[in-house]
Write a protein that binds this DNA or RNA. Structure first.
Length: 356
DNA sequence: AAATCGGGGAG
DNA sequence: CTCCCAGATTT
């Protein structure tokens, strides 16, 4: 039996029951593929359900506000995916008459759709013979064929795409592509795969050569930078606070947060107070206090953000204030969302306390 | 070619 | 702690 036929046979016996596997509707497939970029099925699944409920068709997503799209996306990460998702929904709804294009090349032109996603939609929705190469496929192919070219090198990307094209199943591309990814996710897993029960074990080159544990080869990871964030959380006697939108390029773009003061190292209360004297909003602060005894270390793949939330009690907020109860309507980073949960369990809550 | 962009789960 | 997930885009 050929490689492709083994994959297909394994897939028929082992595939998970997932909502996007019961349709070939391009809107649903596209939505699931964008959400699953660099994201495990278990993490993306509840978001997929939420989006399908709120936006049954591409027109519904196109008509929604970016605020609502980001709020529903909150917690899934890589927020440029949500912004590109919204832009592409508008493009398809208003420029393409609600119809997704059906070729790899045209799909590739959509925002947020790269080589992998264009191939996935073209094959799964339209049966086109385009090989998908995601993290799972890199692992399966590198092991089965014993390829040690780094998968994130220019040469590797090209080599594995070509190899994937050579071994794919042309007639059953829809199931084959999903099958090889599922095989990587369930059987040929990154750590300690159970090769004893693998249907490809007799012809797997890495297993024969004892290199399963060292494949695929990947070039060095980028090193983590440490940042120091001081979030200034205004609380006025009228129950108002201040939220600002992150508008510059970079992390959490277009999400909302409390006024932020970045520093080179952790600030002491005294140092912070000096800075607040010169600020527009906070020079008349009644009281300033650190919220958490220990600073929060929010860990991202490329950033460690040491964070202190400072409660700034004020008589009033002259302009730009919003009722604290409305904060939860805004899309915010997980870091902020978790603080809000702690705040609601603290003695600051509820805010209209005689203490203030 | 390298850096950037999030968050979470497995081991 | 490390690794990596149905990657895309910018620098």
């Amino acid at each position: 039996m050929t490689f492709a036929n083994e994959i297909l046979a394994w897939y028929e016996r082992n595939k998970r029951d997932l909502p996007w596997r019961t349709t070939t509707n391009p809107y649903n497939i596209w939505l699931s593929e964008i959400m699953l970029q660099q994201t495990r099925v278990s993490q993306g699944l509840p978001y997929y359900q939420k989006f399908v409920e709120n936006f049954p068709a591409v027109e519904d997503l196109a008509e929604a506000s970016e605020e609502k799209v980001l709020k529903l996306w909150q917690g899934l990460g890589y927020y440029s995916r949500a912004r590109n998702l919204h832009a592409t929904a508008k493009m398809v709804a208003y420029e393409y008459d609600g119809q997704f294009p059906d070729t790899y090349k045209e799909l590739l032109a959509l925002k947020g759709v790269g080589d992998y996603t264009a191939s996935a939609i073209a094959s799964i929705c339209f049966g086109r013979p385009e090989p998908v190469v995601d993290g799972n496929v890199y692992r399966v192919l590198s092991r089965y064929f014993g390829v040690d070219i780094p998968i994130n090198s220019t040469e590797g990307v090209k080599y594995f795409k070509q190899l994937a094209r050579e071994v794919m199943h042309l007639e059953r591309i829809r199931d084959y592509n999903q099958g090889i990814m599922e095989f990587g996710a369930m059987q040929c897993v990154p750590q300690s795969p159970n090769c004893q029960v693998c249907p490809l074990s007799s012809s797997c080159k890495a297993l024969k050569e004892g290199t399963v544990g060292s494949l695929p080869v990947k070039l060095k990871k980028t090193k983590v930078k440490t940042l120091y964030f001081n979030y200034l959380v205004p609380i006025s006697k009228g129950g108002l606070t201040i939220l600002e939108q992150r508008t510059d390029n970079g992390i959490w773009r277009n999400l909302w947060q409390f006024p932020l003061l970045e520093s080179k190292k952790e600030l002491e209360l005294k140092e912070l107070k000096v800075q607040l004297e010169a600020s527009e909003h906070f020079s008349k602060a009644l009281n300033v206090s650190r919220f958490d005894p220990m600073s929060i270390i929010h860990k991202l793949s490329h950033r460690h953000i040491h964070t202190v939330f400072w409660i700034i009690e004020l008589n009033d907020i002259s302009n730009g204030g919003i009722p604290f109860e409305k904060v939860e309507q805004y899309p915010v980073p997980v870091l902020i969302d978790e603080f809000l949960k702690r705040l609601k369990n603290s003695y600051f809550w509820p805010l209209n306390d005689s203490r203030l």
